[in-house]
Amino acid sequence: MIARLLEGMPRAAAVLLALLFALMAAAPLFAGDYLLTVLILILYFAYVGQAWNIMMGFAGQLSLGHALYVGLGAYTAAALFVHFGIGPWIGLAAAVPLCALVGAFVGFLAFRFRVAGVYFAILTIAVAEFARVGFDHLDWTRGSAGLFLPVAQYARNDLWHLRGHPVMFYYILLSATAIAGLGCRALLRSRVGYFWLAIREDEEAARALGIDTFRYKMVAVVISAAMTAFAGVIYAFYYNNLFPEQVFHISRSIEIILGPIVGGIGTLFGPILGAFVLTGLAEMLTGALAALGIDIPGAKQVFYGICLLAVIVALPEGIWPWLSRRLGLGSDKP
């Protein structure tokens, strides 16, 4: 199975990937609590970055509102848990179809009425903002006061209810990131993947080759939204509190897309690399500033801005295409 999923990958790339995965799998053995939370953050962004990359990197549809699906997924699972005691995995089974449906709605509105490019991006922002304001006033989820999950000290990790030590979340996110990576690779090498790239490159030419562009753009949005829903569920049960102003905020959406941009939009490893680089460096910066006793509010945002600028100027395709060439891996599709 794994062998089939890795088929056609340069040997060096497969070895490096296996090493990275082994290192990540062993990390909780030697990582302290702080490093573990940083790694969790990295994996979270690696996962949602890949989900976003399906829409933008593969199918060329720019979403600036992916916080919508994180928030919807988070609120769905959390509300079901708080109100009915329904566990997160069943909550996930509700959150995924809901986000898929909302994604389909956004996609339908846009693609049916030919809202494209910048206007599509604005539409995705608008829907996310709509959700933010809506949830601010939705009593069922406690509105702007925030929804809190009951927290207690747990003697052992309860995987079924997602209550327990961060290590549990770490391994869940590591698995999700790895599965997402293999899934994206399989998608990209399949019929739908080729059609997405064609749409991204030149939609009119894609249509002239018989591709039902509406349908395949819808598929991209729905898969991306459904994948992001999972990140939302994990977010809710990891942080245990949800505020509309936080989860649906546009800065959350922007955070999601920074990783793929820095790592390489449309590449398979770019979103993962980008998450490591951005989150890793930002946390190192925060740590260094704290050690020096300097407190600069917004230092992280400024740092993100500098990273973004540097990448856009020096490596407009992102770090991964450049790095993979340097490593002699040739293709930017490992």
């Binding site: 090498r189 019929r191 080729y194 790239l197 064609a198 030419a205 894609a206 080759l209 018989g210 591709i211």
Partner: peptide, 24 residues
């Protein structure tokens, strides 16, 4: 001409070939 510029020559043609073929 409207090639898919970032794709390889082979992948350009693959897009067309996949219209009536399910498997890559």
């Amino acid at each position: 001409v409207r090639p898919f510029p970032a794709l390889t020559v082979e992948d350009n043609v693959m897009v067309g070939a996949l219209l009536h073929r399910r498997q890559a």
